[in-house]
Design a protein around this nucleic acid. Sequence first.
DNA 1: CTGAATCCCTGCCGATACTG
DNA 2: CAGTATCGGCAGGGATTCAG
Lengths: 124, 124
Amino acid sequence: MANQTVRIAAPGLPAGPMGEVAEPSPSCPVEITLAALRGRWTTLVIRELLRGDRTFSELRRTLPRLSDKVLSERLAHLAEVGVVDRHRLPDWPPRVRYSLTPRGRSLGPVLQALWDWGTESRDE
Amino acid sequence: MANQTVRIAAPGLPAGPMGEVAEPSPSCPVEITLAALRGRWTTLVIRELLRGDRTFSELRRTLPRLSDKVLSERLAHLAEVGVVDRHRLPDWPPRVRYSLTPRGRSLGPVLQALWDWGTESRDE
DNA sequence: CTGAATCCCTGCCGATACTG
DNA sequence: CAGTATCGGCAGGGATTCAG
């Protein structure tokens, strides 16, 4: 709610009392989203999963410089915030398939907005 | 460029070779934008400036828990990445007016996208 | 008023080694 | 294969103090 008045240009959306919040708050929608994307490699993992389901080792192969530990932290975090789903496969050796939840897929437009601004900024 | 293929759903936008970048890169548009927004308090400072120009002490008053040091760091960083402009006023005591550049104002839709996703996620 | 300099503390992330 | 445990380096940020 802290950043609610980001909706400056949106008609009919009053600034409201929450726009006056004076410090970073975990309940602020902007903070919620940034928290979900927080951490090195996170957006790259999401990008990879936007292309389709992946197992742990497939992600490792696609992002060779990403360590086991960090990948596992990222996936745990993204699962915690409801962006990815884990599925143990009955295979041997054991494998786990990771996929984006609907909420995870809805990050597409968000990443798109980030990509667009970065592109315009870089090309100026 | 690393996250270029975020444009999954956008027709006519090829994944391209850059979509294969396998580690976080400062030249990736997504990274550029996240770097601009990086740091606690940053989005709140931008939100405040979206409402209009502010002096250093006005920002301090609006965000009471934000220290001199961090505010000054944030403003320096935002100026460095071309999001804010600094104007020394000829007043006494000396004051400085901070305003968003066009590029800074164009962060509006980005923050909107972050706000929207955070709102939907919170309300589920 | 608007900062810069310093100190300290915490959390992130990389590397390495180990487990079911 | 898919993780967890541990350690160490480093950067972020809060509090305080000093300067232009």
